[in-house]
Amino acid sequence: MNQQRAQEICTSPKMANVVFNGQPIYIQNVDEQNGTARIYPLGQPEREQTVSLNELEEQ
């Protein structure tokens, strides 16, 4: 996923259908300098992690 689109999804009040390794996720924030995002699986905020934007896919 490109950085601009990830930032748009992160700041949008509407939920977008984004997956990481086939699992639906929520994007908490985007680190533009490092090209990463803080994410967690839907309904599991305790499983928060940082991943490369290249690993995220909008469906």
Rank of each mutant, 00 (worst) to 15 (best):
Q3W: 08
R5H: 11
R5C: 02
A6V: 05
A6M: 05
A6G: 06
E8I: 14
I9K: 04
I9Y: 03
C10Q: 11
C10D: 04
C10E: 08
C10R: 07
C10H: 04
C10W: 04
S12C: 11
P13H: 11
P13W: 08
K14P: 07
K14F: 13
M15N: 09
M15Q: 12
A16I: 00
N17Q: 15
N17F: 10
V18I: 06
V18P: 00
V19T: 11
F20A: 03
F20E: 05
F20Y: 15
F20S: 04
F20M: 07
N21G: 15
N21P: 09
G22W: 08
G22A: 11
G22N: 11
G22F: 09
Q23P: 05
Q23Y: 10
P24E: 02
P24A: 05
P24D: 02
I25E: 01
I25V: 09
Y26E: 11
Y26P: 00
Y26V: 14
Y26H: 13
Y26M: 11
I27Q: 00
Q28A: 10
Q28P: 04
V30N: 06
V30L: 09
D31H: 13
D31G: 14
E32Q: 12
Q33F: 15
N34E: 14
G35W: 13
T36I: 06
T36L: 09
A37M: 06
R38L: 15
R38Y: 12
I39Y: 00
Y40C: 02
Y40G: 04
Y40L: 00
P41T: 02
P41Q: 04
G43N: 01
G43S: 02
G43E: 01
G43D: 02
Q44I: 00
Q44C: 01
Q44G: 00
Q44W: 01
P45N: 04
P45F: 07
E46S: 12
E46G: 10
E46D: 14
R47E: 07
R47C: 06
R47V: 05
E48F: 03
E48T: 08
Q49M: 13
T50P: 01
T50E: 12
V51Y: 01
V51N: 02
S52Y: 13
S52H: 14
S52W: 13
L53V: 05
N54Q: 15
N54E: 15
N54H: 12
E55F: 06
E55G: 03
E55N: 10
L56W: 05
E58Q: 11
E58W: 04
Q59Y: 07
Q59R: 13
Q59T: 08
